[in-house]
């Protein structure tokens, strides 16, 4: 049964991708991209990849279509001009060559889903058997993410921080109204969205509450710092969309967001440095407390908090940077 769903979802994915190649309008492409995200999240669910499905859901529904919509709002919904024949031939050739190389790659692959493939027999069994004893949390993905390969996650948080710095650097200069200053121009939106604002007032607290649930539920079920940060940020973005940029800038001022992003990374980094100062290798939590297993719990809890703060504040800062380009205020 599971295989059937898996095959149908994958063929829907390919259909969406083909539709994306053919479709012309930009908003239609954005909608198809969000459909693509939905389908890949469902595929990850059938594959048993719980945390990945959660992240894809939060990112694919909450953030990436919105960023695309903001860009299209700034640049206008121009259709794409049809491209010349020469470019088509060149790209088809390149695609065929890479495709052939990929197919050569798949020839000697171990069959899909076989429990004795090398991937499942060399390093992975250690995590499944030992993480219960050594780290003591049920969600093995979180224990691998936050303890065995914590350095990867630190690199990951830095990637998000770099993206925030990069977007602010690129967009801050062009908006002659600095992102720091509050924007007093109200959006001339004609009829206020009373219905949307009322429902927003009801739903947004639940979104933020759910973000905190996901943050602290990371050890026992799907969830963790990334997902919580993205959900929190989409709650803030929803608030910004409904009540206008100036109001949300008063609630969470942009400079505070930039400082919070740096603090989040520092929380993560300094936990590692603390274990460094105690003589243990970097990011080794077992020295943070006397009993190693509780020390792992403390370590994972703190770094997940650092990740959550960084991701939430960076995505909000990116939203501010984009929204600043958009306000047709009295410029």
């Amino acid at each position: 049964m599971e295989v059937l769903i898996d095959i149908v979802l994958l063929s829907l994915l390919v259909a969406t991708a083909v539709a994306l190649v053919m479709v012309r309008g930009l908003i239609a492409s954005i909608m198809l991209t969000s459909v693509y995200g939905l389908l890949s999240a469902s595929f990850f669910v059938t594959m048993g990849a719980v945390d990945v499905a959660f992240t894809e859901a939060a990112v694919g529904a909450g953030v990436s279509p919105l960023l695309l919509l903001f860009t299209v709002a700034v640049i206008g919904r121009k259709e794409r001009a049809p491209e010349g024949g020469a470019v088509l031939v060149k790209s088809l050739l390149l695609v065929v060559v890479t495709g052939a190389l990929l197919i050569v790659g798949t020839l000697d692959m171990p069959p899909f889903g076989s429990p004795d493939a090398p991937a499942q027999t060399h390093v992975a069994p250690y995590y499944l058997q030992q993480s219960g004893a050594e780290i003591g949390i049920p969600n093995v993905v979180t224990s691998v993410l936050a303890s065995y390969r914590a350095y990867d996650t630190l690199g990951e948080v830095l990637v998000i921080f770099t993206a925030g710095v990069a977007v602010i650097l690129i967009l801050a200069s062009s908006s002659h109204r600095g992102s720091a200053r509050l924007r007093n121009a109200t959006v001339p939106d004609g009829s206020p969205h009373t219905i949307l604002q009322v429902v927003g007032k009801i739903l947004i607290p639940f979104i933020l509450l759910f973000a905190f649930y996901v943050q602290f539920h990371g050890e026992y079920g799907p969830g963790g710092g990334f997902q919580a940060g993205v959900i929190f940020a989409s709650g803030v973005i929803l608030y910004g969309l409904l009540f206008g940029l100036p109001t949300v800038c008063r609630v969470l001022p942009p400079p505070v967001m930039e400082v919070l992003a740096a603090l989040g990374v520092l929380i993560f980094g300094l936990t590692g440095v603390m274990s460094l100062l105690n003589g243990a290798p970097f990011l080794d939590y077992s020295v943070l407390a006397d009993d190693p297993v509780t020390a792992q719990h403390i370590g994972i809890m703190v770094i997940e908090l650092g990740v959550g703060i960084t991701v939430a504040s960076v995505i909000t800062a990116i939203y501010y940077a984009f929204a600043n380009q958009l306000e047709p205020g009295p410029n």
């Binding site: 830095l158 930039e258 980094g269 970097f282």
Partner: peptide
């Protein structure tokens, strides 16, 4: 071995403050 990478790694967010 980890110090050369760690210093700019922690230095960057600190520099942002």
């Amino acid at each position: 071995p980890v110090l050369p990478v760690l210093l700019p790694l922690i230095g960057a967010p600190a520099c942002a403050l």
